[in-house]
Design a binder for these strands. Sequence first.
DNA 1: GCTAGTTTGTGAATCAATTCACAAGCCGCA
DNA 2: TGCGGCTTGTGAATTGATTCACAAACTAGC
Lengths: 207, 207
Amino acid sequence: MKRIADSTVRRLSLYLRFLEEFEGRGIATVSSEELARRGGTTSAQVRKDLSFFGSFGKRGLGYTVPELGTSLRDILGLGKEWRLVIIGAGKIGAALAHYRGFRQRGFVINAAYDTNREKIGRTFEGIEIRDMARFEADVAKDLPDIAVLAVPTEAAQPVLDRVARAGIKAVLNFAPAPLHAPAEMTVKTVNMAMELEGLTFALTNKE
Amino acid sequence: MKRIADSTVRRLSLYLRFLEEFEGRGIATVSSEELARRGGTTSAQVRKDLSFFGSFGKRGLGYTVPELGTSLRDILGLGKEWRLVIIGAGKIGAALAHYRGFRQRGFVINAAYDTNREKIGRTFEGIEIRDMARFEADVAKDLPDIAVLAVPTEAAQPVLDRVARAGIKAVLNFAPAPLHAPAEMTVKTVNMAMELEGLTFALTNKE
DNA sequence: GCTAGTTTGTGAATCAATTCACAAGCCGCA
DNA sequence: TGCGGCTTGTGAATTGATTCACAAACTAGC
């Protein structure tokens, strides 16, 4: 498949959220113009984004809400249940374990891992905190799809290497460092400090 | 000043992190090549990024670590102390309040706000949870620079409107919805669900 | 079945970001 | 002082993303 830009995928994810809202309110069709208004973009952008994957609308009418929703879920791979593991049972790990958004979207948290004896064996939100020593064996058995890294910065790269060797192909990283991973893996980094500094930059440089 | 791309600012923030690490290890100079290797980019990109703001290096030698660090802190506006307020004392709000990275970088959390009577009056990590009803009066007095929105999706836009009217010019938003704000404000949205769906997309479409 | 009014899908054009490539400048050494 | 080896800073070239603009296709009303 032709390479799809990251920004496109992010917008698709956004459109899907709007569609689900419309679905809930029983709205039957929606135009690219309406989706654009919500998403802070242009109608041409919406249509271009969708056009990479096919043609989902009816001219003169727009898009059928449930139909486009299904197509987007399909494109984004949300049709199946995805298994997550959280690595690092600290503050961020805990916040993630509590986050309801995961379950809503078909993400199931399998387990959390930590190296701290104090934490191992406990649970949060019904999620078991396991010894990181078991990680490789568990992965071979449970076959999780995605690893969420919520470990200290220094630990992030070594842990990623273990995750890679264990055969997990996707990682969501909360450590504030870009990680080096083999090409067959996909790693997304969420870096709050960076966003904050984007704000101070704007505050400082907006004339 | 010429418009600087978001991606450039994010990279500068990254370079600064590396410089601080080098500073800690007593390394005196660094080349664009080295910064690029760390940051997963190219040396030309590093030099171009810096060139928007001046010329900081010495040909044949590279960049003096503490000097470039100072320049970057300056550019990013990290010279001063920034006052934050957290709105929403739920799970995400709590994780943010605990996050040490804020303090390290000169961000001071002034207070947290919530509408839940159960929470008002309590503290987490020394941060007082106040009644959202006081918000406007407090802002007029404390003059915070940045508001961090950790409220439910439905509440995000109305709260943003209050933040805007109160005169705060920068917002870090954790609600999974793009917000509409007046032009003089800067809003950054951190959306985990979007990143996760970027992963499932990759897992699904990587042939 | 014709017309007026919409809205899609998409090449072409524009705008933006990244990479290339090289002259200019600095260091160290003889 | 002059030469060899590096590394910066930056226009030019390229690659990538967004916007424009319009023909094609549909609905509704008569």
